[in-house]
Amino acid sequence: MLKIENLHARVEESEILKGLSLTVPAGEVHAIMGPNGSGKSTLSHTIAGRDDYEVTSGGVYLNDTDLLTLDPNERAAAGVFLSFQHPMEIPGVATMNFIRTALNSQRKERGEEEVSAADFLRLIREKAKLVGLSDEKLKRPFNVGFSGGEKKRMEMLQMAIFKPQVCIMDETDSGLDIDALKMVGDVVNAIRDEKRSFLVITHYQRLLDYIKPDRVHVLAGGKIVKSGGPELAVELETSGYDQFIEAA
């Protein structure tokens, strides 16, 4: 379960999150929608622990763990995964080597045994097939020269490998073609179970055709201003955000 309580966070001098509360129970998928600049990515980075976002009050908990006391890598080991809205290209870093180092670093932090090179190779080949990335792409430096859609596939590849407790997907669907959209649905549905929580940030209802959300929230002006069932996403498609921007 992911629990966010009255979260206030600022970037440089301006407060972006202004008392945001949200609970995603274990086993549920929650969608967040909201206008550009409303603080969706700020929320996802704050949960993941980026240090230029300063939390001024409130709390973020994963089950009983107070995430705000942990370093970003400790949060990752605790099970927080962020699929970035804009994934990085990292020249000179070998993709497979990096993902394996990351996986083993998380496992080490949790006191688990490392995954052997052979087992890892099997695992990454299997998941690469699922997300539609060729062997050749895995051999390139991390994300270098990848298209926008390929970078999102790389995010999904890592999510499928790490099997995190909380999956935060920040606009994973933007820039994806129809087949890729379906792939994202497949990845989520493959690991969806009663213990895992998903926070899916999106601008479009169509992703939610593949990933059925339990709840939909509207984030505007740094707060959750409305929550509802899946029908809320459909409603927003036609009504837009005007009503919330005025309210916020």
């Binding site: 980075h45 370093d71 890598n73 990085m88 180092t101 990351a102 998380q106 890592q158």
Partner: peptide, 18 residues
């Protein structure tokens, strides 16, 4: 890039040296 690598589980030192 450091934040990205740390989000994936690498320590500060590991991310920087990588």
């Amino acid at each position: 890039a450091i934040f990205y690598l740390r989000q994936r589980g690498l320590t500060q030192v590991a991310a920087r040296s990588l």
